[in-house]
Amino acid sequence: MKQTNKLKKSINLILLLFVCIPAFSMHIMEGYLPVNWAVIWSLAFLPVLLVGLNRVKALIAETPEKRMILAMVVAFAFVLSSLKLPSVTGSSSHATGMGFGTALVGPASMAVVGTVVLLFQVFLLAHGGITTLGANAFAMAFAGPIVTFLVYRLFKKTGASMRVSFFFAAVLGNLFTYLVTSIQLALAHPDASSGVMGAFVKFIGIFGVTQVPVAIVEGLLSVMVINVLINNDFIKENDLFSFNSFNRLRKRKIAHEIK
């Protein structure tokens, strides 16, 4: 017992350290979203963040070991987002590591994980920005994890194995993040002649080609780490992407409304 307390303390310390060191990918840079869009995306992300905060609080209150899993999720995201991989176009991009986290702590908690890292990245690496934080977090910490979750469920339903489902979930979640970023940029910067659609095609062209190999690498690495975790009896296959996170959330909300 004493040992677990000690471990918890050190984990907290490590988490704190973490928080101070940044990095993710594909962010819309500071100032590149006009004021109105910056406000709209920030407002859109705010409720997601609040739900996520609630969820993380509930997670830690229920099972303190989740703290350890959260630390691991952040660690994975750190490693992946620092790997700038070259791509066919001669441009580079990095992965997000969000799919792995979604499998372990659910999409809601990822809103918090993503935001914290994005925030400190703004201050230390000048990647992304305060005004574009809402938009970036919406794409990476909300849209991506949700798609990952849904894709996993869908694949599992069709009878695919856990590893195949998880691979595609992580890959598509990563790609979807870029899709949303492209939409955000296109809405804010419509092409002079071809409008929003034309701008979207241009942006998705830049991000898309670069991102496909990166997404595949992210999917492979995610499956590898999950393999190791399962092999060491740390988690069970069925615990991945469990619906609990949603159900519990709904119950809490209902209880709240009755009050």
């Binding site: 594909m26 840079m29 070259p86 176009t89 441009s91 580079s92 670069t210």
Partner: peptide
């Protein structure tokens, strides 16, 4: 892609 003189997609 040739070289790694890339500035990143963003």
């Amino acid at each position: 892609g040739g070289d790694s003189e890339f500035g990143g997609a963003d």
